[in-house]
Write a protein that binds this DNA or RNA. Structure first.
Lengths: 338, 338
DNA sequence: ACTGGCACTCGACCTAGAGGAGTGCCAGTC
DNA sequence: GACTGGCACTCCTCTAGGTCGAGTGCCAGT
């Protein structure tokens, strides 16, 4: 159905359109890519490609532009992996050195990704299903207030204040000891269960406080599995001022919805493999005029989280995919070591 | 020089232009605001206002639009305080109830501010110059790594990992005790000094570890005085799609520059008093086509930090200023209560 | 000091026409 | 049968000209 040359024509249309943002005609095509055939032949091929739904005409006597389906075919079968430039390689491999803590790693990653792809970047905080509780700390805030702090093996620190009327420092220390004995080293998933059985075993003077602290810890455990997301490179959207309605506006709106972003990224499953959602393939209506390029990151098949970029469907997929993959790999490796 | 009626004319021009975004002419003015004089008279007044630089014409034979100087006069002398709507009052006074921790308070505040002003909101994390160290915690991360955690009286928790070869749990506990004895309760400013004198007093086995931990704490102290900002309501920019170059683009660019934002907000000094920077009054070139409405928040003259909104110079100053002031006051009060 | 009247300016909007890029189709060639 | 050159056609883009009307500045009159 689609012979080699037709595919080549499609590839040429995509690549020309991506760089010029203008419908591309048969004549320009044969001139810029030496296809070895006449414009008339290309026109015939284009007619077939249009019949099949890979390209379309904005109006009767204009050139062709790729449809979402066309981009999809391009990505699946035509896009060679574009090697990263040495500068990009260098940027990626030095960007994380000297990172201080998890916040810093995520922050640097999002800036890096935005910089190399020149798109809006999204990075999800890592959730390690095999992460464990490193330590629980209770700190008196004066009065009846106590700050409950949980440190996980990924280095993430969460806290919640609770009201615990009339507890003494000694009791606090005692409770701290019990909690750490029960929780330290358990996985986040098991920790919730461990907390449940703990309540009964507390000596009476501690039981009221224990209940308060337990529920705070449960909240913390809950929020550390449904994780946050960080966004960067928003000013890159200004490049697409002309496509305000189709690109700038939907992306800005989607970015404010953490839930949407999380779901989007959540579907980018296997690390090392880059997932692309082109236009209408996207489950979220506002983003159906844009594309998402995402990848999970982690190490040894252990998925931690996802990262990616959002941009107009008209984007340079080979480069973007290469960059996203490289950054995902690098961050995964970095976190595995650190 | 400018009699009462001329001021009234200016006020009418500002308010009409803000709502219509179109140059306003003499006839429309007398019709919409019953000025009691003829269009010709208004024209004479407008000629004077233009001579003085308060208004300008986009082109000959068009209506007038306010200049930055005109807005400034409007704000200083003409803008009555627009009372908040009951709905806004309610939104403001309920938005923070149930806030969990400092992050949550700041997050809710920025969303609230964006919602009521329908502009892009910026909230600086509170820095309390009189804040003190509540507690220092050292947690072994396994191997030679130790996590240094500092909790301040505002409820802010910061952490840094450090390398401390071959330290035992006992030594860690000892060091923790010494640190808390020396630091707990001291102001953040004094804490740095206290750390300096501490190093000498440590028993030899702890001195190496002490140095590492001290420098981590100093870093933490450094970053908690130069604080972060949080941004929200960016999708509100889509309302100004027509003014892409003058509003959307500069704001997006400025938002990515934390430093710029901090400096901007830092100049909004006294709490309760709203600072407005109109267009060219703004020290940052990119933002000279936009206005900033900001206020410090805190309690009892104790400034904690600032918050505000950025939008086009053509904005509804009375409402925006009222909202910013109300939110700043409310957040200040909320934080003071704990 | 204000007003009505008037000539004038100039952008917004419409229309018409030229130019041109690009197409589809068809008859002809290898 | 696949490719090509040629040709008529479409329809966007750009320009030029013309009308319309909101708005102005100025001046003479009250």
């Amino acid at each position: 159905m689609l012979d080699d040359r037709k595919l080549q024509v499609l590839r040429a249309i995509v690549s020309d359109y991506v760089s010029s943002q203008e419908p591309v005609g048969s004549k320009a095509l044969v001139e810029r890519h030496n296809l070895g055939v006449s414009p008339a032949t290309v026109r015939n091929d284009m007619a077939v490609l249009e019949d099949e739904g890979y390209i379309t005409q904005p109006h009767t006597s204009a050139g062709r532009i790729p449809t979402d389906k066309g981009y999809r075919l391009f990505i699946d079968r035509l896009a060679g992996v574009k090697p990263l430039s040495p500068a990009e390689r260098r940027a990626i491999s030095t960007f994380l050195s000297g990172a201080l803590d998890l916040d810093d790693v995520v922050g640097r990653t999002v800036r890096l990704l935005a910089q190399v792809t020149r798109q809006v970047a999204i990075v999800q905080y890592p959730v390690l299903s095999t992460a464990s509780v490193r330590h629980v700390e209770l700190v008196s805030l004066g009065g009846d207030r106590v700050l409950v702090i949980m440190i996980s093996s990924t280095g993430k620190v969460d806290q919640r204040p609770v009201e615990v009327p009339g507890i003494t420092e000694d009791e606090l220390a005692q409770l701290r000891g019990i909690l750490n004995a029960a929780l330290a080293g358990t996985s986040l998933a098991d920790a919730a269960a461990a907390l449940g059985t703990l309540d009964d075993q507390l000596p009476p003077p501690l039981s009221a406080a224990g209940t308060q602290v337990s529920s705070a810890l449960l909240e913390i455990l809950g929020t550390s599995t449904s994780t946050r997301v960080v966004v960067g490179g928003v000013p890159n959207l200004t490049r697409f001022g002309a496509e305000f309605e189709t690109t700038v506006k939907p992306v800005l709106e989607a970015l404010e919805e953490q839930v949407v972003l999380l779901k989007l990224l959540g579907e980018a499953a296997t690390p090392g493999d880059v997932t692309v959602r082109v236009g209408h393939e996207n489950p979220y209506r506002e983003l159906q005029t844009t594309s998402l390029v995402a990848s999970a990151y982690g190490s040894d098949g252990d998925i931690w989280a996802s990262l990616g970029v959002v941009g107009p469907t008209r984007m340079d997929y080979p480069s973007t995919m290469a960059s996203v993959r490289a950054v995902a790999r690098y961050v995964g490796r970095f976190l595995a070591e650190g």
